[in-house]
Design a protein around this nucleic acid. Structure first.
Lengths: 227, 227, 227, 227
DNA sequence: GATGAATGAGGTTTCATTCAT
DNA sequence: AATGAATGAAACCTCATTCAT
């Protein structure tokens, strides 16, 4: 298995990046390169999430990463490429975590709980990226044409379908009542989770991150009409 | 009442822009200036929503608005200022529409219906701005430091509270069952509306805009656990 | 007649640039622009002829021309465009002078004399460009693909044909003996003139520019085999 | 005799490069080095003649020559040095061929014929270098200050004098009529040869390379006035 | 008051060269 | 001895902003 195919797998979320790094079989040189690449991406993430794509210069990234500017261009064709790699890599971490969460749990309610917990955990442990992605997911897609956006969107729709299928299975197993459109409910759940977590992010004093992730589920499921 | 205080009021959504324009008391000169200002903002909205803040130059805006570049700087201190004014103005339209909707309707359910309808209507009639705002609301706010974002956030929180108070009143009037945290439910409802409308925006073929705005409410309220 | 069509005509050598400038009908603003454009071209010619296309930066040209760098880009899309305009303009001067020379003169010999005199005169009065063109006529054409080179080459071939036709007419009028291939003789004459003038350019002490331009013709026509 | 002095001699055209290589006295190591040097020069010639000095990077040359970039700097101080060596080496081949040609032949006319044939042969067998040299002989010499150009020019003047001396000897032997300035005639002949061969190079369809090299001499000597 | 020509700081990117391995 | 990763000066070009007309 080559380095690049491993990277590919890591990026598409099939393998964790850490797994790639663990491959002690990799020659020292390759490991070193991967670490450098990672340091550049980290510097990029830090700066992009603080100031946005257009307000960060390649010089700044080079300085933050403590490399010469030319070195950045050894790893990434251009600024866009660096940004794209960065977003893809982070998104893959998220995708892997969410997919895994939805697959684990005794019953459907447990699966949803796990999903919310995963969102919660990723949100808190990857704040800079959350800020970056929410800030620019669409903003940059104007210039970073199609490509990135297309792929991420497709991936997101697949996740929604996975959530929807949990609802469907829950209906069959009589865990939920009649749900007219599971897909739309998935959309609603997902957006509610985001909105709530963003609320906590925006105003930590007023809306502290809840001790118990289930809080979010409760919020969502309290939405019941009486008559 | 001065022109600038009227403008201020219009921008914060207390008075409609049309109202300001109707004031035939305004000398012709002032009316003319307002119209020019508006033309620049419209040109800006068109371009920004198409290409994003950083990919539009002041020259382009000047050309689109058919003014000399110097003229733009007569009305707005700089590019950021123009952008800010543009977003504020549009947001005020939205705020006015939403607040009005929440105030009209026999009972609480009707108020919520009106709110969803207003969102629906504004969304469809102001697509360019929706695109712009969703695309960049946060992206640019990093560079357009504090200012804009702060104010809009505060305004948004006020809106959420207004929705929450509808829920509260609904509980008191026994229209809804027990709702543990009306504010959070408001967050959930609002984000669900947005997510759903964005879905329709992203993939119009797969998710056409619903004939009946109530569809969205139904989606939201189907979220009921059985046991 | 518009400014740009005048410029076009000047560049293709149909009208002299001075003629364009004389049009006192041109609004002052247009005249001013033309003068600036000319100053930039002059600065470019000076520097390019001294150091070659790739060893001159746009900053240098800006400094030499005493303009800000941005101003250069108002007149020329990029460095290549500036270079191209420069070469075309100068070539047009040469083309005009040579064509005119070949058309004036009682008989064919007189025409050739005029041609040599014109070469001689242009050579001496446009030394920087001669240096530039000879230095780079082909060198730059690698990067400044086709375009410029194609056109100049075509124009040069037309000139050769004109010279050849003078030889032909001279044969018909019994001024020259039998010339097997007038076109090739034109090539030979032209290259001889260039070589001789370059010799004088390279080593002015050893080969001073001749007082009498006819010297070059004599050199050329001394090439006679005896047996 | 040291390696470097042999190289020197080879480069100035006094000894053929093959001669240097034949010296089986050279230790294997030295022979190996020479071969490597040669491979680098060949790679350089290929690339420079295709794209011009400034459009070829040292990395490209290293790749084409299948050496590491550092290795190139073991043989040549810098890019300029490599280019200079390359041009000098090729020029030496030309010089050797031309000098030899002018020395062989029964009479003066035969010598000139041989010279033309040599030009013709070298031209066709070293097209890449011809292209490179004609394209950039002067263009680069501005930046590759003095040095190269000075030497080549001197060598060229010596060649011209050699041709002139053939004319002179031809006059003495009554093979040519009265020639006022043999040196200038040499210039004329040489430039005519070049111009004609270039013509064939530029437009092979219109001006095919002649079967018989004497064609060029005929062209040159047809330049005879009648009266 | 309106104009738009002029400015120049600052962005992205390339590539000749060095030097630790 | 050979390598090629790393460097960073310097190139081209854009565009927000000013100010003389």
């Amino acid at each position: 298995m080559t380095l690049s195919s491993l990277l590919e797998a890591a990026i598409t979320g099939l393998v964790r990046f850490e797994t790639v790094m663990q491959k002690e079989k990799l020659p020292r040189r390759e490991r070193e390169k991967l670490r450098q690449r990672q340091e550049i991406l980290t510097a990029g993430l830090t700066l992009f999430s603080e100031k946005g794509f257009h307000n960060v210069s390649m010089h700044e990234i080079a300085e933050e990463a403590e490399f010469a500017i030319g070195t950045l261009y050894k790893f990434f064709q251009n600024k866009e490429d660096l940004y794209r790699a960065l977003v893809l890599e982070q998104c893959s971490l998220f995708a892997a975590a969410f997919n895994e969460a939805l697959e684990q749990g005794e019953d459907e309610i447990e699966k949803l709980r796990n999903y919310v917990r995963a969102q919660y955990k990723m949100f808190r442990s990857h704040l800079p990226f959350v800020r970056l992605f929410i800030a620019e997911s669409r903003g940059v897609s104007y210039s970073i044409k199609a490509g990135l956006d297309q792929e991420l969107r497709a991936r997101y729709y697949r996740l929604l379908e996975k959530i929807a299928s949990v609802f469907e299975s829950g209906i069959r197993n009589k865990r939920f009542g009649n749900i007219a459109s599971p897909y739309h409910l998935a959309v609603s759940l997902d957006s509610t989770i985001h909105a709530f977590l963003l609320l906590c992010l925006d105003e930590p004093e007023k809306h502290p991150f809840p001790e118990d992730p289930d809080t979010i589920l409760n919020i969502f499921f309290q939405g019941m009409l009486n008559g």
